[in-house]
């Protein structure tokens, strides 16, 4: 059975969505799957809305782009507004609680709307790890890769000396997801 999962991570340029996408793809590879990661380049990659996309499959990936994301993450309203239009059926949305959702989401979509930015800023006192908190929420809510692989992928990528902070950020994300299962659309 061919399983192909399309994931789109979006936020504002500098929020670390590119890195989050790379880490997710690396986690999939650690789990012995195939993954392709791509991103938007250009002026929008510097401030404004930015996105990183990952295709994960248990077999070879032909078409490398995302056309109907089944998992969509948005950390800013601008990114949400720009990138939510082509979601697939039964899409999972992971969004920061500061966002207002629109009423054009596909039927049966599941929304996990949790305080990602606030958790990084207030609980961890490090807004820079919001992307790792977000990854924790995304993986926690979707189970797209196992916990051990995303944790290993995060620790492989982050700067030396920040492992503990990033592990806490990831765990916090998992906790947010666990508390929010079912969503509050």
């Amino acid at each position: 059975m061919v399983e192909r999962h399309e994931v789109r991570l979006s936020g504002s340029g500098g929020q670390g969505m590119l890195l989050a996408g790379i880490i997710l793809a690396e986690a999939a590879i650690l789990a012995d799957k195939n993954a392709v990661q791509s991103q938007s380049y250009g002026p929008e990659a510097r401030g404004g809305a930015s996105r990183s996309e990952v295709v994960i499959s248990n077999t070879d990936i032909d078409y490398p782009k995302v056309t109907q994301p089944e998992i969509f993450m948005a950390l800013t309203q601008e990114a949400y507004n720009k990138y939510h239009h082509d979601l697939g059926p039964n899409a999972l949305l992971v969004v920061d609680e500061s966002l207002s959702l629109t009423d054009d989401l596909p039927e049966k979509s599941r929304v996990v709307r949790v305080p990602i930015i606030e958790s990084a800023t207030e609980t961890l006192k490090r807004p820079i790890v919001a992307n790792i908190v977000a990854l924790g929420v995304l993986v926690g809510a979707s189970s797209i890769v196992e916990h051990e692989f995303i944790e290993k992928a995060v620790l492989n990528r982050v700067p030396r000396g920040t492992e503990e902070l990033n592990r806490r950020a990831l765990d916090l994300g998992f906790q947010l997801a666990a508390g929010a299962v079912g969503g509050n659309k």
């Binding site: 790379i22 793809a25 590879i29 195939n34 993954a35 392709v36 990661q37 791509s38 991103q39 380049y41 990936i61 490398p64 782009k65």
Partner: peptide, 10 residues
């Protein structure tokens, strides 16, 4: 092409 040059794969 830009797709092959920039995308990341295993």
């Amino acid at each position: 092409d830009e797709v092959v040059g920039h995308m990341r794969e295993k």
